[in-house]
């Protein structure tokens, strides 16, 4: 059960990163920081402004998207022609800067994000789950569905897909490539922020929470195949469930190793990801 909750949020992180890393070819080390930012934004909304939970998540998405778009516009666009290592270094700088800014603003003390749900767990048969986690799962599913709709049913989504399949042709057809890049980065970052806003109340918010999350996001992206949205979704769910099972039946200390071992094994036998056969968006 917990595996699904975690998995849903990993999926959100994965979708966001597969767009940025898989399609834009940017090794986004700061992805975890947008996740953290989302959690803090939710904290600010819920604790400071007294808004509702859904409002907090939406607010987090907006924050993440805005900052993401800004980052792309200001830092990445001028460096478009440079090698992947250069953009990676830029994102490392953003990562360090963001994390320490968060430390400066909110301090090192972990924040408990208040939420309006009762803490007594709901018992469904042999399984007990807290209402908050159920809500998180539902919202995550909703956001994933919304992402799909955006990519496949809207004009913007079509433009995005066109850009990443064949930029030259897309440009000839009138798609503004530069703007699509900015939007894609913003979208990916917004999803990461959503994941943070959702998981923040379940756990706690602290400045270094994004580091492990980013690593897991990268695993999910590889698992699903770069640029592969359904792959990222399934990959995220799989990782969440595998971690829960692994920690339960293997040793708890090696719990995070489960993610790593999975990556190594998958890459050894199916280098293009588990779901490579499925549709690639770009």
């Amino acid at each position: 059960m917990n595996g699904l909750v975690l998995g849903g949020t990993y999926a959100l992180l994965g979708i966001g990163l597969t767009l940025i890393f898989g399609l834009m070819n940017v090794v986004n080390f700061a992805h975890g920081e947008f996740y953290t930012l989302g959690a803090y934004a939710a904290f600010a909304t819920l604790a400071g402004l007294g808004g509702g939970f859904v409002a907090a998540v939406l607010g987090a998405i907006v924050c993440g998207a805005l900052l993401g778009g800004l980052t792309e516009r200001v830092l990445l666009r001028p460096l478009r022609g440079e090698s992947i290592d250069t953009t990676m270094l830029v994102m490392i700088g953003v990562w360090i800067a963001m994390q320490n800014a968060e430390l400066l603003v909110w301090g090192g003390v972990a924040k408990s994000i208040p939420h309006p749900f009762p803490t007594e767990p709901l018992v469904l048969g042999p399984v007990a789950i807290a209402p908050l986690r159920l809500f998180v799962m539902a919202l995550a599913a909703g956001l994933i569905a919304a992402s799909y709709l955006l990519i496949h049913r809207t004009k913007l989504g079509r433009a995005m897909r066109a850009t990443f399949q064949d930029a030259e042709t897309a440009a000839l057809m009138g798609v503004k490539i530069e703007r699509i890049h900015t939007v894609t980065f913003a979208f990916g970052s917004g999803l990461a922020a959503a994941a943070g806003a959702l998981l923040g109340p379940v756990f706690l918010a602290y400045p270094s929470m994004g580091d492990l999350a980013a690593l897991k996001a990268f695993s999910v992206v590889i698992l699903g195949g770069l640029g592969n949205l359904p792959g990222a979704t399934l990959g995220g769910l799989l990782l969440g469930i595998a971690e829960e099972l692994g920690a339960g039946y293997v040793s708890s200390g090696y719990r995070d190793a489960v993610g790593f071992v999975i990556i190594i094994v998958v890459l050894l036998f199916r280098p293009s990801g588990l779901f490579a056969r499925q549709e690639r968006i770009g």
């Binding site: 830092l75 830029v90 700088g93 953003v94 360090i96 800067a97």
Partner: peptide, 8 residues
């Protein structure tokens, strides 16, 4: 924070 900004 300064380190990150300088790196950027």
């Amino acid at each position: 924070l300064a380190y990150g900004v300088l790196l950027l």
